[in-house]
Every structure is written in structure tokens, then in C-alpha cells.
């Protein structure tokens, strides 16, 4: 039973143009938002960009490594808590022995990535020894472990979460303005996409994609898959941690509900919805997901009914994700 097609992407001009178009479109949102006089748009777009980063991170292991991980919300949450705890110390409300008290993003974002990456590596050592259904269930269990740990940590707000008032800065400049912060997130997404694109096409990416297709063959050729899968998992966790830190920064708040297993499932849905075989697929998926969530929840209190139905429909019908529709449309347009 194979997973989604891990088609060999090239660093072709088409893909890079696609990424560039996406990023430019996202960068135009504040302008459009201002023109329409609708500030809500930026709020939604910030959410989309942050979840897009997390989903792109997940897709490194899911779409290209064939590993169905259900612990990425947990890693996302770790990143969020690293930023939250570091910043909340400035308020004097909490203290942590291992984290600096700072709201400087240039310090705290790399730190969030490092901690989340380390956590992913530790969980990966156990989870990657197994495969298939075991892997899915173990990552799900790890996600819940992280969730319950933060629920139990009363000094960091427990189930209610951790609020902080400290102003965040980037290289000393205030970074909390809604629009500048949004541009920062778009820039982070652009960097992540460009880096992922290189990574997937590199020798490392080749090994990762090959391991998803035929691990036994890879071993017989002389490449043990485990260290590569582990590195990919840790890297993926680090980028998910970055997204989580940005998420906490965007609302000056982080709580265990951001790391529930349902959030992990949501991230998987975003990847599948957008298209597993493409680096930028999850960006489209995150956009569609968050937009649909916003529209449906404004429409009815029972929106989850429609949303669940939508997910089922996606699984049944849309094997290549939304990005395939775009590509098919583009090809059809060219042919006619």
C-alpha cells in the first residue's frame, strides 16, 4: 500500500514561479485589505500563513517521506510555549530556569525551532523504529502526551493557557504591528518554501523520497533510511515549532488547545487538501482550510458537520489535492 505519489519535483522554473506567485499574492493582502477597508482580512491571512508554514513543515515528512505524523500540533505548541514562556517572563508572571526572559524574535524564534526540533528528534527515535499504522498511533499518542503535559503545567497557565503582555521586537524594532508582523510571516513562509524546494531536490531529498517508495531497495543500495528520516523529522518539527512561535506571537497567547490531536489532524487535512506531492501544496491547502472554516463557522453553529463532510468528500474524490486542479486547469488552458 503506497501513499500519495511523491512525484519527483524539479527545481524547475514552473514550480519556482508557482511559489513566487503564491508569495506575491499573500504579500498583497494588506493592500487589498486596506482598499476594501476590511481589517479582518489580515487577521485571516495571518492565520493562513502561519498554518501554511506548519503544514509545509509537516508535508516534508508526510508528502515526501511517506510518514503520517499526528504529532505536529504538539511540536507547533512547543514552539508556541517557548516564545510564550520567554515573553511572559518579562511580565514577571512566570519564571523558567532554561529559557531567557526575552521578547526578541531574533533570539526566541531560533530557540523555539531548536527546542521543537529536539523534541521531534527524541520522539522520532522511538516512532521511526516502527512503520505504518504503528507510526501513526505512536505519533498520535506523543501528541496527547505533550498536550497533557502542558495542561498539567499550572505554572504556565495549565488548561487556560499562557497570556503575555510584553512587546515583541525584531532586532530591537517593535514587531507587533498587525501589518509588519504579517509581512514578517510571509517572509518566513517564503524562506521556508524556498528552502524546502532546495531540500526536496537535493541528495537528502532524493533519499527521503526514495525511502517513502521502497525502503528495502534503498537499504539494498547501501543507504540506511533511518538517519535520513530522523533528520527530516527533526527538521520538520523545528519548522513546525517556528510556526507555533509565530502563532503565539500573533495573539500574545498560547494554550494547550493549539496542540490538541485535532489540530494535528487539521494539519494533515491541509496537506492532503493542497496536494502532497508539491512543496507549495500545503499553502493552498491551508488557505482553503482556514477560509472555509471562517466562512462555515460564520454561517452556522453546526458548521463542523459540513466541515467533516467536506473532509470525507476530499478523501473520496480529490487524490492529488487542489493544486492538481490548478495544474489541470492550466494545462487545459494552454492546450486550447
Amino acid at each position: 500500500m503506497t501513499l500519495a505519489p511523491a512525484a519527483p519535483p524539479r527545481a524547475s522554473s514552473a514550480t519556482l514561479i508557482g511559489i513566487a506567485v503564491l508569495v506575491v499574492a499573500l504579500a498583497l493582502v494588506p493592500t487589498v485589505s486596506q482598499a476594501l477597508g476590511n481589517p479582518f482580512l489580515i487577521k485571516i491571512a495571518t492565520r493562513i500563513v502561519i498554518f501554511a508554514i506548519a503544514a509545509v513543515a509537516l508535508n516534508l515528512v508526510l508528502g515526501f517521506g511517506g510518514l503520517v505524523s499526528l504529532c505536529h500540533a504538539g511540536l507547533f505548541g512547543i514552539g508556541g510555549y517557548v516564545l510564550g514562556i520567554a515573553a511572559a517572563q518579562l511580565d514577571g508572571e512566570v519564571s523558567a530556569a532554561l529559557l531567557p526572559a526575552t521578547g526578541e524574535l531574533a533570539v526566541v524564534l531560533p530557540l523555539a525551532m531548536a527546542v521543537a526540533g529536539l523534541a521531534a528528534a527524541v520522539m522520532g527515535v522511538i516512532a521511526l523504529r516502527t512503520s505504518g499504522a504503528y507510526f501513526i498511533m505512536i505519533t498520535l499518542a506523543f501528541n496527547q502526551m505533550l498536550y497533557y503535559v502542558f495542561v498539567a503545567l499550572q505554572q504556565y497557565g495549565g488548561e487556560d493557557g499562557l497570556q503575555f503582555n510584553a512587546a515583541l521586537t525584531l532586532f530591537g524594532h517593535p514587531a507587533t504591528g498587525r501589518v509588519p508582523f504579517y509581512y514578517g510571516c510571509v517572509a518566513a513562509l517564503a524562506l521556508v518554501l524556498a528552502g524546502m524546494q532546495r531540500l526536496i531536490a537535493s541528495r537528502f531529498g532524493v533519499v527521503l523520497r526514495a525511502s517513502a517508495q521502497n525502503e528495502r531497495r534503498l537499504t539494498a543500495l547501501g543507504i540506511p533510511p533511518l538517519p535520513y528520516k530522523l533528520a527530516a523529522f527533526a527538521l520538520s518539527g523545528a519548522v513546525a515549532g517556528l510556526a507555533g512561535a509565530l502563532f503565539a506571537a500573533s495573539q500574545s497567547f498560547i494554550s494547550p488547545s493549539a496542540m490538541s490531536w485535532v489540530q494535528s489532524g487539521d494539519l494533515v487535512v491541509m496537506c492532503v487538501l493542497g496536494g502532497l506531492a508539491y512543496v507549495a501544496g500545503p499553502v493552498i491547502g491551508a488557505g482553503a482550510f482556514v477560509a472555509l472554516e471562517a466562512v462555515l463557522s460564520g454561517w452556522s453553529v453546526h458548521w463542523q458537520l459540513a466541515f467533516g463532510g467536506f473532509i470525507i468528500a476530499v478523501v473520496v474524490t480529490l487524490r492529488g489535492g487542489l493544486i492538481d486542479l490548478v495544474r489541470i486547469a492550466a494545462r487545459g488552458g494552454r492546450a486550447s
Partner: peptide, 18 residues
């Protein structure tokens, strides 16, 4: 992939292998 296997480790993250 087979050639790559014989060319040392594959922890090379940047250059386009294809």
C-alpha cells in the same frame, strides 16, 4: 540513487541532485 549510495553520505541539502 544507486550512484549516490556509493558517493558517500547523502546529508547534502542544497544542490539539485537531478
Amino acid at each position: 540513487v544507486a550512484v549516490q549510495a556509493g558517493a558517500g553520505h547523502s546529508f547534502r541539502f542544497w544542490r539539485d541532485a537531478a
